[in-house]
Design a protein around this nucleic acid. Sequence first.
RNA 1: GGGCGGUUAGCUCAGUUGGUUAGAGCGCUACCUUGACAUGGUAGAGGUCACAGGUUCAACUCCUGUAUCGCCCACCA
Length: 934
Amino acid sequence: MGTSLQSGIYLSISHNFISGVFLSDSSSLAKVYSPTDVEKKWYTFWEENNFFHAEVNPEKQPYTIVIPPPNITGVLHMGHVLNNTLQDAFIRYRRMQGYEACWIPGTDHAGIATQNVVEKSLKKEGKTRHDLGRKKFLERVWQWKEQYGGVIIQQLRTLGCSCDWERERFTLDASLSAAVTEVFVRMYEDGLIYRGKYIVNWCPKDHTAISDDEVTYTEQQGKIYYIQYPIKDSSEFAVVATTRPETMLGDSAIAVNPADERYKHLVGKMASLPLTDREIPIIADDYVDPEFGTGMVKITPAHDPNDYWVGQRHNLRQINIFDISARLNDEVPTKYRGLDRYEARKIMLSDLAEQGLLLKEEDHTNKIGRCYRCETVIEPYLSDQWFVKMKPLAEPALSVVLDKTIQFYPDRWTKVYEHWMTNIRDWCISRQLWWGHRIPVWYCVGDERCLLECKQPIVSRTTPEKCPYCGSTNLRQDEDVLDTWFSSWLWPFSVHGWPNEEQAGKEKELAYFYPTDTLVTAPDIIFFWVARMVMAGLYFGPSFTKSDDPKKNIPFRDVYFTSLVRDEKGRKMSKSLGNSPEPVDLIAEYGADAVRFTILFLAPLGQDIFYSKEKNEIGRNFANKIWNAGRFLLMNREQTGEATETSKGDFNLNHLDLADQWILSRYHSTALELQKSMDEFDINKVTKLVYDFFWHDYCDWYVEMIKSRLYGDESLEAKQSVVSRALDIYDAALRLLHPIMPFVTEELWQNIRQRQPQATIMRTPLAAPDPELVNIQFESEMVFVQNVIESIRNIRGEMQIAPSKEISLVMKLSGIRDAASIQKYEGYLKRLARVSSLTFIEDNTRPMLSASGVVQGEEFFIPLAGLIDADAEKLRLGKEIERISGLLKAVESKLNNSNFVDKAPKEVVEKEREKLSNFGVTLEKLQKSVEALG
RNA sequence: GGGCGGUUAGCUCAGUUGGUUAGAGCGCUACCUUGACAUGGUAGAGGUCACAGGUUCAACUCCUGUAUCGCCCACCA
């Protein structure tokens, strides 16, 4: 690339600039940015013009994200804000990079949560779902869904999310339900789905099984009871310890460790089970830890998962003593029937005590499992459930993550994933609910003969008319529905109409947009959702990708795990704690851009965020800063106008002012780093890059510097060039920022220049970063100027010289730089350091009473006659001398160490030598200055 | 019990293969309403990089251990 570049080329801009015609002027911009109306205006504009929509486009590379579908019962919380801001930033960035970017939104039917909400409202009317019956109840839920569901989808719009709303899906849509049925039937046929009796986590309130992962354990202070079981034909007792004494009514055995000498003689004997007339055997099993408690364990196969396995091994009876609400059933003595589990516990303990069989009770803390939705204590419960065999699915799903076909960010979640995948258990997919996908299974209830012979359930894609075995038409569908995750694990392909994508005319969509590119989700659903999507993708992918290549079948390539949002005390933000600010209120108060920017600014990859409302000032202030920079540019454009196209052609880089050269270099280096950070999903760094560039480089230095030309004696044409260049950079920088702050950037982009009616920043390409335009020389020259200015400002500050007071600057050059090259910067010094005159001296003369400084070896003096007293300056110089001496000493000792000089790389040693000489020279000059002050 | 992550300025956090004068935002102090912005500007104070060893010419950075905070997994009846 040459050095003579048109402005439009050096930033790769194709702005719709119409010379001399301006839409707006600075008077149309308020002094303070007020987001509310701006946000509404542009979101409507984007949506009405269909800018969010993506189509199959062979010319472009697709970039796809599927939203983690929020519950329809949900309202926006800070976790969503973070999650969706990230997705929107990724999508907007790729869209501007030229990808066909498609963000597919939708909601999840959320079985238990939604059913709970509707049941609660029924309860207010004094009704239960059973009063209505299944059909009426479901109508009611759908009604609720239409009326209140999906609030969150509206809220995403206020956040600025650029979802392809035409593609919005709901997990209970007909086409997604078809996917669920297809998957169930196919996996059943493949032998991966089976029905079995199993100990499940039973919620006695919701009357449903919930998965292991949906149980939350909380530590609780409780008691452990020691109960004596009389041993038959013996005077001895078996003493067992239990925290749930009521389950003893379901005991089938007492177990000891086979190696335990104390009890060897008891194995094979019978013990009588107190409070009942049953007798149970004493058995030996390795599961028992002889060190714990008494070394004897009561075995309750129907109510404890470990006991279940012991029971299997020893062929013990499974005695279920509870009904679905955890009340004692008819398996127990009449006295206890119908009692709630805790009531029963009380009564039984007192009965045991009465009989002298309650040996003792001790305090005991244990972790107790609760339903993660209603917090009811879970009861391990034996019941008929449907399961998915996980082992065959887990193996390929693990290897694509281990071999980085799917990449996790941060990578450490790979280990968590691996651990779960290698210790996986079968997935219980049936739920005793009404709201959800009903299990596509029917049972024949034909006649006596059939009940005996037609044991096979009928698994079918469509409602069967008759029993294939006996021909009976008397069929009953399984009452249960499927786990909510059984539909969400298909999300990345079910959104495109699979398995009937061809019928729906969506086969091209599926081929084009699948696999998706980036999944953005919270790490707490890595097992619920992420892992299972990988399994489903690999298992069903080949049916539509027509390929066995895992690369083509995985549901996504990169997974970005978001931070957890905590409050200032470190607690997880949650509705129940009430410690989460309402995002909608935050957006109203600070603006969507501010909320978006702030959360990303605070969100380092893989680290928790400590959030508080006030932090949003960071984003708000930043938006305002950008806003005002825009106002400044508009004001100047209004006054001077922009350069014409022809004069813009004269932007020979070598003829540019240092400020121009420098900001251009800074822009490209910022854009390059931004690109890298985006590719690495380091969005936190992206916010910092644009923040620093806009605020410090562009506003603090560049804008302040061009003022010297804008308000100086330059020709009108020169001033117009300055304005044009400033606008070009600003325009490009707005585009860099747009993915994070879409609204304010659109508003300003539309205002700074005349645009075509349908033009939008969100579909304007980014200015491609060009490494050749990153210029170290310009940057280091700028550092020199900045250091001189900062040095003078420091003197002013320390000497208490009023900012309004003009000073003169006398420079004594070291010979590296000449006077002419420094004189070029006089305008900057004037404006930024209030230097009224710049002169040079060559000999040893110096202004008699003066403050002084050294920057990069160049010495300067500020005559202070009448300004300050010498003592103050001596003090100031003393501080500086002390600082430099310290540095010098450190360098000296390094260089005096022969080991360092011998072993360290040449460049490092050379650098230290250079430092030594620089510090030495500076120190000498500073000391002379002190002497000169007398 | 196992695994993972953190510990850097008063607070919240950057610091990418070991070599920078250890940075930013907020807060604090002083000064400034200078023709974009007081939601602003300029300058300043503030850190033995949790602690103890080790590797190295050189450690905030690598290794070992300790402390402490927080997550995740498995749970002993």
